[in-house]
Simulated assay, not measured.
Amino acid sequence: MNWDVTLLRPLWLLALPVLAGFGWWLYRRQGGVGGWERATRPELLRAMAALGRIESRREVLPLVATLGAAALAVLALAGPAIERRDAVSFRNLDGVVYVLDASPSVTEDPRWDELVTMGRFGIASLGSRPAGMVVFAGDAYVATDMTADHVQLGQTLSLIGPETVPDPGTRPERGLDLAAGMLAEAEVIAGDVILFTDGAGLGQDSLKMAERIAGQGARLSVVAVGAATAAMETHVALGGGALMSRDVPDGLSDWLSQNARDRLEQQSYPLLFWRDFGRVLLVLALVPMLLLFRRQAT
């Protein structure tokens, strides 16, 4: 452990000169008679002191105790801390990418709103996992990069419509290719790719992408817009995921929550933590305060 002390809030040290000046002022005032020293003749004051009518003895210990406690409190507020580089940091290696067929045959389907609701249920079950979104038709585009802002992701999903992707056609392999690239770029090794499709365009090219996704340690699942097809079942079998239907609205959220494979990996670099000893100094400040409660001899 590094024992170099750092002040987290050093501006509090500016109070120390003020405290020292105030202490000196109290010391000068202590034991005197205030403004009478300027208004009374010195010989009269000496006479009153000889009769014991003026207390000229200065009590230094209570003043030192008070100022010492105040100084320790100021140092505590300054936040003396020791750097800790032995703290372990983790990051989540499980991510999810939605791949949505945004062609008019899907987005204009009367059941599209049900799929959006199903997708939002799935987003709500992600927990701490980051997620992204890809849309495709004749070409594919990243709608949302990998993010932990699930509210934004859900809003993006709700905005997808027939005009989102202008390219005509249905090329799911391009969407899956982008999803695999997103997982690789985010260094996700236990992710899920969720393909929303009516089955159009699924073929040998998309099967190769399903194999690539599985090779990265991720799973490919399919949410069927209509009836499940043999091509969907083949992709799911190769991708190691699940085939889900809009008839079971909770199917996706259950899959993402119950079958989540959150993995934590210790980072190759340590995070920077500080151990603040300010509270310890506050406890020590109570020690000089005890001197103020000592019994006076009579």
Rank of each mutant, 00 (worst) to 15 (best):
R91N: 12
V165E: 09
T170W: 08
R295A: 13
I194V: 07
S221V: 01
E265Q: 05
G52Y: 13
R261P: 01
A69S: 08
G34M: 06
G122L: 10
L26K: 09
Y141R: 00
V5E: 05
V223E: 04
A50N: 03
P42A: 04
S128F: 06
P166M: 04
A69L: 00
L11R: 09
I82E: 11
D4P: 09
A49C: 02
L63V: 13
L93Y: 02
V248Y: 15
L243N: 01
P80A: 01
L256Q: 06
V236Y: 02
R174E: 10
V60N: 01
E211I: 02
T164D: 03
V283Y: 12
T6A: 14
L14C: 13
G122M: 11
G79F: 04
G31H: 10
V248F: 13
L11G: 11
G278H: 02
F90L: 14
L13N: 03
A124G: 15
V165S: 08
Q258G: 12
L178T: 02
R29W: 01
G239W: 01
G201Q: 11
M118I: 03
V135P: 05
D276Y: 02
V283H: 08
L159Y: 13
L176M: 09
R279L: 15
L93Q: 08
Y269E: 15
A73K: 01
P130T: 05
G21W: 03
P168C: 06
N92V: 01
L13F: 09
R246N: 05
M1T: 12
G203M: 10
G169F: 08
D276E: 08
Q152L: 15
R129V: 00
L207K: 00
L45I: 04
R111K: 08
R295K: 14
T66K: 14
A87I: 07
W12N: 06
V74I: 13
L243H: 03
L16S: 10
A49I: 07
L72T: 14
A73H: 02
P172F: 08
V97E: 02
L8T: 10
D109H: 10
G226V: 01
G122Y: 09
P130E: 06
F121A: 08
V88R: 10
Q204P: 07
A81S: 10
R279Y: 14
R57D: 15
A47P: 06
S103K: 00
V287Y: 03
V142K: 08
L202M: 11
M118Y: 00
R9L: 12
L26P: 03
R29I: 05
L284N: 03
A140M: 00
V236T: 01
D113P: 04
A148S: 12
E211C: 04
L72R: 12
T170K: 06
T164G: 00
N2Q: 12
A131C: 00
G215N: 03
P288E: 09
T234S: 11
